[in-house]
């Protein structure tokens, strides 16, 4: 299901809430959920794809079914300003080495904040309905808009 840089064995196989529902009185008291399977000492120096995520970490889950519209990313126009990265509420903009390299469609909820904050002309991120194929969306990308004279 997952493609690209964030692909791991565990990724995106489970829908949040799809497993057996646990009643409030069935949850063990003082339950501890470990985010990682191993001890991780230098977390802030590990990239997500290098981390030993456990099954409890929501990184291994997906909320893709929330989405009715999705952002599509056009690498040719992007200037790597990282506005979308800093304001994405769902940690779904993947940036590596100061470059925006794609969208994490397992975690994106389709809010559209990234499209609103994109400063390029035309925008390098646009919203399309979920049914539209990414290639198809990219082939029909709008032309540069001329500035209206005031």
């Amino acid at each position: 299901m997952s493609k690209g840089v964030l692909a791991t064995d565990k990724r995106g196989v489970r829908e949040l809430g799809a497993e057996k529902k646990v009643g409030w009185d069935e949850v063990p008291q003082g339950v501890v959920l470990n985010s990682f399977d191993d001890n991780v000492d230098n977390l802030s120096h590990l990239r997500p794809e290098e981390r030993p995520y456990s099954d409890f970490n929501s990184f291994t889950a997906t909320v893709a079914s929330w989405r009715v519209i999705k952002p599509v990313y056009n690498r040719d126009i992007c200037i790597d300003c990282q506005n979308c990265w800093v304001w994405c509420p769902d940690t779904s903009i993947i940036s590596r080495d100061k470059q925006m390299i794609g969208i994490d469609y397992d975690h994106c909820k389709g809010c559209g904040v990234c499209v609103e904050v994109c400063p390029t002309n035309p925008k390098s991120l646009l919203m399309f309905t979920e049914a539209v194929d990414n290639e198809e969306a990219l082939s029909g990308w709008p032309e540069k808009k001329k500035k209206e004279k005031k």
């Binding site: 802030s44 590990l46 997906t62 994405c88 509420p89 925006m100 994490d104």
Partner: peptide, 28 residues
Amino acid sequence: LKEFSTANERFEGAHLLCPGCAHSMIVR
């Protein structure tokens, strides 16, 4: 922002905050 974007995220996606919620922007 380019320098800032090299930070490695420690707040994971697939939380259940509403789409477009500013809480997660601040926490991230």
